[in-house]
Design a protein around this nucleic acid. Structure first.
Lengths: 218, 218
DNA sequence: TTAATGTTGTTATTTTATTAACAATTCATA
DNA sequence: TATGAATTGTTAATAAAATAACAACATTAA
């Protein structure tokens, strides 16, 4: 799938390959650590060796963001960081509701890091009376019933599912009914949504499958 | 990157595309829920509609596992489940050490689900005196110093990094030094390891980048 | 001032993955 | 028993991504 990116000089939208989009946050993290270490310029070949990739793929990926490097010098680290943050929309804050405040849900709320990547969890929902009406790192946890009212007050477009697997579809349906535009599903359960709803599945089991496969080839 | 899969009749190894490998755990989850609902057979077209994919890609993916469907009937659900579990090595248990018992680390230990996918976290390590020498869901947490000794007693091949970002490389180096074969890095930090070490990065920021990008095109 | 070198950035090629086309199979039904 | 329909599974075509090749350029050093 291709993604709309920068504009060409003729005004047409450039299509950004999803693999490129997925690699950019990794580069960003690397550039941030370079900055901390006082590095001002970085070449595509250095980036490539860090990520065990081909250098031309680096320049290609970066070119999608519209950033220009200087020959013989490389890319300006500050500019790389700023450009990628804007390109990935990490500079604007998107609000999200989180369903299922168990281990993983709590971890996501507690993990302040998301804030720096453009996402703010504004409320949690759960069925457990033990956690409802408490707060996790300042984020209030509500009973599911209150989702409807709250969704009218708070314009959150993203819904995060960290419930037990067998509740994923049910929660997704609820989200769609009350206006959530993008669903981030952390359960391995496949869920169905209307095609105008954005659905992203984060499955650590896919990563695990790759690790085990490689391990068992040794 | 291609991955070794089933054997062909001539004895040569079939190469499994990594995208296929990554999709299989999702199918597995779906098949398990079908089984719970008493469904015995499933066709590629039904699977395809569930995952919003082309049906031929489903049959192709499944064919790598060596499973055979019956025309006009579809695939036997029980057999699908068993075959995929074995194919992905989810039936054998691999032991893992986890470094960084913070929010995410705790969540991974608490999340019993990994056990059913072939992974058992056997020990945690941290620098925080508040958590060292306690146990999380029966998993003991040790000071980093004891990693060396423990790694000689317990033959864990996988190391999980859930430390703060700036500690990731340090911990990775330690793991490599004491014999870890595969590193599962949950920080966005890129880390360098010798090329005989398996490295898998799980970056939720990549997923977030995709979501934000699609959302901001609406 | 000029030549050599390192680096970007574009275009071409190759590889990989997905989709399409179609043949083979087998079950259900008339 | 024959025919039609549904479904697998293979092969072919297309699309996408990664890699390679190379031209353009700016900096440094002679």
């Amino acid at each position: 799938m291709k993604i709309r990116g920068n504009k060409k000089s003729n005004g047409d939208a450039v299509l950004v390959p999803e693999p490129t989009l997925r690699r950019l946050p990794g580069y960003l993290s690397f550039f941030k650590s370079l900055k901390i270490n006082g590095v001002e310029f970085v070449s595509s070949s250095l980036i490539a060796s860090t990520f065990n990739m081909d250098a031309t793929l680096i320049t290609k990926d970066l070119s999608y963001t519209g950033i220009k490097g200087r020959t013989k010098i490389g890319y300006n680290v500050d500019k790389l960081i700023d450009t990628i943050i804007v390109f990935l929309d990490f500079n604007t804050t998107e609000q999200a509701f989180l369903f299922g405040v168990g281990n993983l849900g709590k971890a996501l709320i507690n993990y302040g890091g998301l804030m720096h990547y453009g996402l703010k969890i504004v409320a949690g929902f759960d069925v457990d009376p033990g956690i409802v009406n408490t707060a996790v790192k300042g984020v209030k946890i509500y009973p599911i019933d209150e989702f409807r009212d709250l969704s009218r007050k708070i314009p959150a477009r993203i819904g995060i599912i960290t419930t037990p697997d067998n509740k994923a579809q049910e929660v997704a349906d609820l989200m769609v009914a009350w206006g959530i535009k993008a669903i981030w599903n952390f359960t391995p359960q496949s869920i169905k949504v209307p095609e105008n709803i954005i659905l992203e599945n984060t499955s650590i089991y896919s990563d695990l499958a790759v690790i085990l496969n490689k391990l068992n080839k040794l």
